[in-house]
Nucleic acid binder design. Structure first.
Length: 588
RNA sequence: GCGUUCGUAGCUCAGCUGGAUAGAGCGUCGGACUUCGAAUCCGCAGGUCGAAGGUUCGAAUCCUUCCGAGCGCACCA
C-alpha cells in the first residue's frame, strides 16, 4: 500500500463518518464539504493531518470536540486503514504504520528503479515543446541558458508524466540583424575564418555584430546598407546567399558545440529562412473567411477587441509578412509535421502579448489544437546592477560562464587531491559545472525574474548542484563498500521495523511522496518543485548519515536496513537528477 | 495611460489551490574530522511577509486601494 492510497483511504473514511454523523443529527444534512489533507508541522503530531475547522458551523460544535467524537467513532470500526489516530486539538491526525509502508515502498522503488516516480497524467499525449531559438548573429548568453535548462527539464518532466514529447528549435537565421554581422564581415573581415583565427564560429560572427554597432555610430548609412543587403538576400543574390551560408554555418557549428557541452538536444530543427513565408497564405485565407479585415492601403489586420486588446497588423501594405504572420505559419506546419495535441513555447515573459495574440488567432482560424497551446513564460536573468546590456558589455557569455565553472570544479577536485579517484578530471569537472548551472537556473520559479551574481553565485557549497551530486557520490561510495563485503550479510533479512528514528521516518515519507512531486512539477511545468524536493531529501539524508552509522552500524540487521534505505534515497536522487539536468557521479 | 508579472531575513530564494511557532542557502560569529567521503553536519544572531483596508473561526497566501519595481502595448524580431 502506497502513501497516496493510505491518505485517500483515511480521507474517505473520515468523510464517510462525518456524513453519517451529520445524518444522525439532522435528516436535512446530507452533504459535507470535502476534507482537506495536510502535513503536520511537527513529527510528534503524526504524519497526516485533517483540519476540522470547516465543520464547526454545520455541527455547531468546536473543532476540538468534533475531532474527539470522530476519533471515538472511528475507533469503534473494525475495518480501518493502517495507522493510528492522534488527537491534535482541532486536527485529527494519523500516525502511519511505517513497517508495512516501508516494506511496500521498498518493493515498489526497487522494482520500478529508474522509472520510480513516473506518472501517467499525460498518458501518451503528444506534446511539442519549442525552446532555445537563437539568432545566428551572436553566441549564446546567460538568458539562453535559462531557456535551454527550462526546455530540457520541462521536456524530461513531461516525459516522466507519460507524455510523448518532441523537442524543437527554431533558428532565427534571417533578417536585418543577421545582415548586420554579414555586412561588417564583408567590410572588415579580410577573409578571417574560425580556422584562421582559432575563434569559435558563433563568437567570430558575434564579433562582427559588435563591429557593426561601432561602425553604425560613425556611418549613418550603415543601417540602410544592411537593409539593402536583406533585399538582396530575399532576391536570392548569389554572393549574399553564399556569405550568409558561410557565416550561418560558422554560428551553427559553434552553437551545436555549446549545446553538446550543456546537454541540450532537439528532435527537430526549424529555420526561419524556410518558414518565414508560411503564414501569408493562411492569413489571406483568413481574410477570405472574414476572420481578418483589410485596410485601404492593403494591409491585413485582426481586431482583438474580444480579448480586450487593440488591433494587430498581420500583413504589411506591401504584402510582406511579419513576426506574427510567420509564427502562425510555423505553428500550422509543425502540426502538419507532427500532429501534436499540445504545443509549449518556452519563451521569455516579454513575449506574453505576442503569444496571447497568436493563440487567439489560431483559435479564430479554426484549429482545434489551438486550445492547448502554452506559453511557458520565464523571467529575465538580471545582474546585480540590473539588466544585461550588450552595448555596455555586461552580457554573460554562455561558453565563458561554463568554462569558468568547469575550471573552478577542476581546482576543487585537485585541491582535495581527488584527481586520481575521479572518473576523468575533465569529464567530472564538466559534469559538476553543468549540474551547478542547471540547478542554479532551475531552482527559481520559472515565472520570476532572477538575479545572477557572477562572483557570488558560483559556489559549490550549500544549496547547489554539487552539494546534491556529493550526496549521490557519498551514497554510491558507501554502497560500493557494502558490495565488497556483501557475503557477510548473506541470509540477513531486511527488517523495516528497525527504521524508527525521526530522520528515517522523514526519509521514508519523502521517498513515498516523490511521485506526487513529479506529478505536481508536470502539471505546473515547474522544475523548481523537483529542485526543492531534491534538496530537502538530500539534506535530510546528510543529517541522518552524519548522526548514524550505516555500514558501520553495530548490528548486521541494522546495516541491512539502513543500506536499503540509502538505496531508496539514492534512487530518488538519481531519478530527480534526470529531471533537472544534473549528472549522477559515482565519484567526484 | 492601458495590460501583465512581482515585492518574504543584509544578499539569493522557498512557502502562495487560506490552517498549527513563516523556512532554506549565502554571509557574520561559534562548535564538530584516530569512525561509512568535512563539496559535510550542528548551534547563535537576523522578519511590522511593501503599506492600509476587507473577506474568514483563521491571511505571507484570497479581494480592493495605494506605494515601489520589471516586462509589454511597432506595417522590428
Amino acid at each position: 500500500m502506497m502513501l497516496q492510497e493510505i491518505r485517500e483511504q483515511w480521507k474517505d473514511l473520515i468523510e464517510e463518518q462525518l456524513l453519517a454523523w451529520s445524518k444522525e443529527l439532522s435528516d436535512d444534512e446530507t452533504t459535507i464539504s470535502p476534507l482537506t489533507i495536510q502535513v503536520p508541522p511537527k513529527p510528534e503530531l503524526g504524519d497526516i493531518a485533517f483540519p476540522l475547522f470547516a465543520y464547526a458551523k454545520q455541527f455547531r460544535m468546536a473543532p476540538v470536540k468534533i475531532a474527539q467524537n470522530l476519533k471515538e467513532r472511528i475507533e469503534q470500526l473494525e475495518n480501518r486503514p493502517s495507522g493510528e489516530l492522534i488527537l491534535a486539538g482541532p486536527y485529527l491526525n494519523i500516525r502511519l504504520d511505517f513497517t508495512s509502508l516501508i516494506n511496500d515502498l521498498k518493493d515498489k522503488v526497487f522494482e520500478d528503479g529508474d522509472i520510480y516516480g513516473n506518472s501517467n497524467v499525460y498518458d501518451g499525449k503528444k506534446v511539442m515543446i519549442e525552446f532555445s531559438c537563437p539568432n545566428t548573429n551572436k553566441p549564446l548568453h546567460l538568458g539562453h541558458m535559462r531557456n535551454d535548462s527550462l526546455g530540457e527539464s520541462v521536456s524530461a518532466i513531461l516525459k516522466a508524466n507519460g507524455a510523448d514529447v518532441q523537442k524543437v528549435n527554431l533558428i532565427n537565421n534571417r533578417g536585418v540583424h543577421i545582415c548586420k554581422s554579414m555586412l561588417a564581415y564583408k567590410k572588415f573581415g579580410n577573409g578571417e575564418t574560425p580556422q584562421s583565427s582559432g575563434i569559435k564560429g558563433d563568437h567570430l560572427v558575434g564579433n562582427y555584430y559588435v563591429k557593426f554597432a561601432q561602425w553604425e555610430k560613425e556611418d549613418p548609412t550603415a543601417v540602410d546598407q544592411a537593409k539593402e543587403m536583406l533585399v538582396k538576400w530575399e532576391e536570392g543574390d548569389k554572393e549574399t546567399i553564399d556569405l550568409w551560408n558561410k557565416m550561418n554555418g560558422w554560428t551553427l557549428d559553434g552553437l551545436s558545440q555549446s549545446y553538446e557541452k550543456t546537454g541540450v538536444h532537439f528532435d527537430k530543427y526549424y529555420y526561419e529562412s524556410e518558414t518565414y513565408k508560411l503564414g501569408k497564405d493562411k492569413v489571406l485565407k483568413g481574410l477570405e473567411d472574414g476572420v481578418f479585415y483589410q485596410e485601404e492601403d492593403g494591409s491585413v489586420w485582426i481586431d482583438l477587441d474580444e480579448i480586450g486588446l487593440d488591433k494587430k497588423v498581420l500583413l504589411r501594405s506591401d504584402g510582406t509578412s511579419l513576426y506574427m504572420t510567420q509564427d502562425i505559419g510555423t505553428a500550422i506546419s509543425r502540426h502538419d509535421d507532427w500532429p501534436f495535441e499540445s504545443l509549449v513555447y518556452v519563451v521569455a515573459s516579454e513575449q506574453q502579448y505576442h503569444f496571447k495574440v497568436l493563440f487567439y488567432i489560431l483559435d479564430k482560424l479554426g484549429y482545434s489544437w489551438a486550445k492547448d497551446l502554452h506559453h511557458l513564460s520565464y523571467g529575465m536573468v538580471n545582474l546585480p546592477n540590473g539588466k544585461m546590456k550588450s552595448r555596455e558589455g555586461t552580457v554573460v557569455d554562455a561558453d565563458d560562464l561554463f568554462d569558468n565553472l568547469a575550471d573552478l570544479a577542476k581546482q576543487e577536485i585537485q585541491s582535495k587531491e581527488r584527481e586520481g579517484l575521479v572518473d576523468g578530471l575533465e569529464k567530472t569537472a564538466n559534469a559538476i559545472a553543468l549540474g551547478a548551472l542547471n540547478y542554479y537556473l532551475l531552482q527559481v520559479d520559472p515565472t520570476k525574474d532572477m538575479t545572477f551574481d557572477p562572483v557570488k553565485s558560483i559556489s559549490f557549497n550549500g544549496n547547489t548542484g554539487p552539494y546534491l551530486q556529493y550526496m549521490g557520490a557519498r551514497i554510491s561510495s558507501m554502497l560500493r563498500k557494502f558490495d565488497e563485503v556483501k557475503a557477510e550479510y548473506e541470509g540477513i533479512e531486511f527488517d523495516a521495523s528497525l527504521l524508527t528514528s525521526q530522520e528515517e521516518r522523514e526519509l521514508v515519507k519523502m521517498i513515498a511522496n516523490f511521485p506526487e512531486v513529479v506529478k505536481k512539477a508536470g502539471l505546473n511545468y515547474n522544475p523548481a518543485i523537483i529542485c526543492s524536493n531534491l534538496y530537502d531529501i538530500s539534506k535530510m539524508f546528510s543529517k541522518w548519515y552524519h548522526d548514524n552509522k550505516i555500514l558501520m552500524a553495530e548490528d548486521k540487521k541494522l546495516v541491512v536496513a539502513r543500506i536499503n534505505l540509502s538505496k531508496m534515497v539514492l534512487q530518488v536522487i538519481k531519478n530527480s537528477f534526470k529531471l533537472v539536468g544534473i549528472s549522477y557521479l559515482e565519484t567526484m
